[in-house]
Simulated assay, not measured.
Amino acid sequence: MKQICQSKYEQETSEHEYEFLEQQIAYYNLPSQSFECSTISHHPSIDSIQNLTIREALMKQFKEVAIQSRNALFNLYLESAEDQREEYKKKHEASVKKMDASQSTLNENEKLSSTLVQLINERCNKISERIQSIYKFKLENFLSKSNL
C-alpha cells in the first residue's frame, strides 16, 4: 500500500509539475515578456557604445543569443520534466500490476480483501485531488504575481 500511494504521489506531482511548467513557459513567451521588455535588453555597456551601427549590430546579436539560450533552457526543462513524468507513470503502473498479480497468485489467507483494495484506490484518488489542488493554487499564485 505504501509503495502504491508513494508512486501515485510521484506520478501526480510530476504530471502537474509538467503542466505547470508548460503554463510558465507560455507566460514567458507572451509579447509582454519579450526580450525588449526585459531588464537585460537595457545593459549599460551596450547603451554606452557611441557608434550606432556597432551598437545595433551588437544589440541584435545579444538579443539572438539571449532568445536562443532561453528557448534551449525551456526545451531542456520540458524534456527533463517529460522524462520524469514518464518514469513515475511507469513506476506507478508497475506497482499496481504487482499488487494485481499478487492477488491472483496468493492463497485466500494472504490476499488483500476487496475492502482494502478499494481503500487503496480511494487513497490514490485523494492523493490525486490533493496534488491537483496544490498545483491549482500554485498556478493562481504564479498568475497573480505575474499580473503585477
Results as ranks from 00 to 15, higher is better:
E22R: 13
S80K: 11
Y77N: 13
Y88N: 02
H43R: 03
S38K: 01
H43C: 02
Q23E: 15
Y27C: 08
E79A: 12
N29M: 07
L78K: 09
K90V: 05
R85D: 02
A81I: 05
S48M: 05
Q33L: 03
T53H: 07
S48W: 01
M59L: 13
S34K: 08
Q84L: 14
D47W: 00
I54P: 02
L52I: 14
H92G: 08
P44D: 00
S38D: 06
E22D: 12
S48T: 06
K89F: 10
H43A: 00
K60A: 12
Q61Y: 04
S80E: 12
N51L: 02
A94N: 10
L52E: 15
E56M: 11
N75E: 13
S80T: 13
Q33H: 05
Q61V: 03
L30C: 08
K63D: 00
H42V: 01
S32I: 11
Y77H: 13
R70C: 06
R70T: 04
P44M: 01
Y28M: 06
K90I: 05
A81W: 00
A81P: 11
L73N: 15
E82T: 12
H92D: 07
I46N: 01
Q24R: 14
I46S: 01
S41I: 01
K90L: 10
H43N: 08
R70G: 06
I46D: 00
L78I: 10
S69H: 08
F74I: 05
H92S: 11
R55W: 00
L76V: 04
A72T: 11
S34M: 06
S48G: 04
V65L: 11
Q23G: 04
S48R: 06
E86F: 15
S41F: 00
E79C: 10
P31V: 01
Q24M: 15
T53D: 11
E93G: 09
K90M: 09
